[in-house]
Nucleic acid binder design. Structure first.
Length: 285
DNA sequence: ACAGGATCCTGGGGGC
DNA sequence: TGCCCCCAGGATCCTG
């Protein structure tokens, strides 16, 4: 499940092979993604489109092309984006192929579950989609104060707030759990109960977890790969995610799994104390 | 208004 | 051994 570190890894991997390359054609696979590719814009590739740069914003990948056009990708759950030899056998679930020049190479977009997105947008459309209006700041730019302000006005739990892309962009299930553990905050705590210093802890935890995950190319659980066969390494450093039943690396208590905000959530019941239930007013016990 | 639930999609894993 | 069911979850739409 590609989140910020995995998407960052894919973007960094794409940059070298796309340096100085142009896209000269696009072809569609037999099945559509959830958002159909805009075939009425295929004319864009009747002239070669040099790649000006590849960027990440949250979990989105933007490939800027000459002439004010952009390829925009989201890997969803199982998306894979890479540059291959055109001769290489077409992998199953390949939905889009972009022919590159020079060299006999292609960009291929695969996605087993088809939760992903691939689109061709103008600069204006692309920037509107990735702007601060739609998407919160990158976690590295998120201040503790901003996080606290968002949280204290919300009756949602911390886990849901962290995964809300309009609060901060790029956090999903894995790094939400890992950051909450690092900050010693229970995932089901309500935003309104977050204290200022806890917001600071959470923000710092999130940034340090993400930086470390980027250093080791993200997490490969089952389906995340980059380049030809690249795998992440952060799954070897998970402290709570997918660690149900194992001892907490900090205190030894047994890691538990819970459904929070509809998502499977992993935490240490001792390091991340459960929110105290509010005493019922006017009644004893 | 806002929060939580259903939905999409497929392969893999668990259970019988 | 084989089959069936259920689970995983990002974003969006729906419902209460």
């Amino acid at each position: 499940m590609p989140e910020l570190p995995e998407v960052e890894t894919v973007v960094r991997t794409l940059r070298r092979p796309l340096q100085g390359a142009s896209i000269v054609g696009v072809r569609l696979g037999p099945r559509q993604l959830r958002r159909p590719w805009p075939v009425d814009r295929n004319f864009v590739f009747t002239t070669p489109r040099p790649v000006l740069g590849v960027y990440r914003r949250g979990k989105w990948i933007r490939c800027r092309l000459r002439g004010g056009w952009n390829l925009l990708f989201h890997l969803g759950m199982t998306g894979r984006l890479r540059v291959t030899d055109a001769e290489a056998a077409l992998e199953p679930h390949t939905h889009l192929v972009f022919d590159l020049s020079p060299g006999n190479r292609q960009i291929r977009f695969q996605d087993i579950r088809r939760f992903g997105v691939a689109d061709l947008l103008t600069d204006e459309e692309c920037e509107a989609l990735l702007s601060g209006e739609q998407l919160g700041p990158e976690p590295f730019d998120l201040t503790a104060e901003q996080l606290w302000q968002k949280a204290r006005g919300s009756k949602r739990c911390l886990k849901a707030i962290l995964m809300d892309q309009s609060v901060t962009a790029g956090v999903g299930n894995i790094y939400a759990d890992e950051a909450l553990f690092e900050a010693r905050l229970h995932p089901a705590r309500l935003g309104i109960t977050l204290r200022r210093e806890e917001a600071q802890r959470l923000r710092n935890a999130l940034v340090s977890v993400l930086h470390r995950a980027i250093e080791v190319n993200g997490s490969t659980i089952r389906t995340f790969f980059f380049g030809e066969d690249g795998r992440g390494g952060y799954q070897n450093e998970f402290r709570v995610y997918h660690q149900t039943g194992k001892p907490c690396p900090r205190c030894g208590a047994v890691i538990r799994r819970l459904l929070v905000a509809g998502r499977s959530t992993h935490f240490c019941p001792r390091c991340q104390p459960a929110p105290r239930r509010r005493a019922r007013t006017g009644s004893h016990r």
